[in-house]
Design a protein around this nucleic acid. Structure first.
Lengths: 142, 142
DNA sequence: TATGCAAATGCAAACTATTTGCAATAAGAA
DNA sequence: TTCTTATTGCAAATAGTTTGCATTTGCATA
């Protein structure tokens, strides 16, 4: 499971970058930390942020997300729908198994797969920065 | 690597869909079939198509790609750069390594990883229907 | 605690990738 | 060859994201 992330880690990422801790940034970070297992996109985050402070603007959301991403504090995913979705980058890496019938998302980890991936990348002359593995499957009949 | 695909398969996908085989479509399909190991985006395809017939328009490229995708003849990938990239959908399964600096996409295959994935799914009580593995990395310094 | 200045904000407008409306054109069945 | 309708090219629309700029605000310093 994704480890519960307290917003302090994200705030520290900003501080380490020499950035100011502003009110909009605090709100955005709180939203990222509070997310359940979802992968919100910029608009999701913006809508939630506006509920806490109606003055927050979408560009600020994007700017904050970009900053956090550049400092490795959150991760950006691209799905086929064209939007970018974000999730905190802390905790041990995990992958996803998606139940094609129910849509349930099961997180899992495999040290072996992680190692194999690094090996493959090394053979190709690369160093992995991050990866994404999604399995789509159905429950086996008993 | 993706098996060499003759354009007839793609043309048939259109015919099966009851679509007309027009000059622009022939050119676009030829480009898809001829691509090397690249994963061209719509603009790449458009630029090459224009070289063969300067009247071809970008919307036609998009419309043709969408049609081929809907009929499973090509596959659309979304990487973090925001653009969609396409490749013929035939051939053995392979995964992708994305060069974070250049955006280059390298295909690879690993029987071991495929097996590990199935094993993991089985342990979780699932059967894999398909999967997606993307490695994001940087060239290792020499 | 008050002050000053650079960093961050909000707004509007720009940009990029992709899609759509519509009149003109062309595929292909008859 | 003719006719019908799918497809095209153009221009304009849309969606997601980024940027320029004047104003505001965090926070280091006094």
């Amino acid at each position: 499971m994704a480890t519960p992330l307290d917003s302090d880690e994200l705030l520290n990422a900003l501080r380490d970058a020499g950035a100011r801790i502003t009110k909009p940034r605090k709100i955005i970070i709180q939203i990222l930390a509070d997310r359940g297992d979802e992968h919100p996109d910029a608009m999701d985050i913006f809508r939630r942020a506006v509920r806490q402070d109606s003055r927050i603007s979408l560009p600020t959301v994007y700017r904050t997300l970009k900053m956090l991403e550049e400092h490795g504090a959150i991760q950006r995913h691209a799905f086929v729908d064209g939007r970018s979705r974000y999730e905190p980058a802390d905790g041990p890496h995990h992958d996803h198994l998606i139940d094609m019938d129910t849509g349930a998302v099961i997180e899992f980890q495999s040290e072996k797969i992680e190692r194999l991936q690094e090996e493959i990348a090394r053979e190709l002359g690369y160093e992995i920065v991050h990866h994404r593995l999604e399995l789509y499957g159905r429950k086996t009949k008993v």
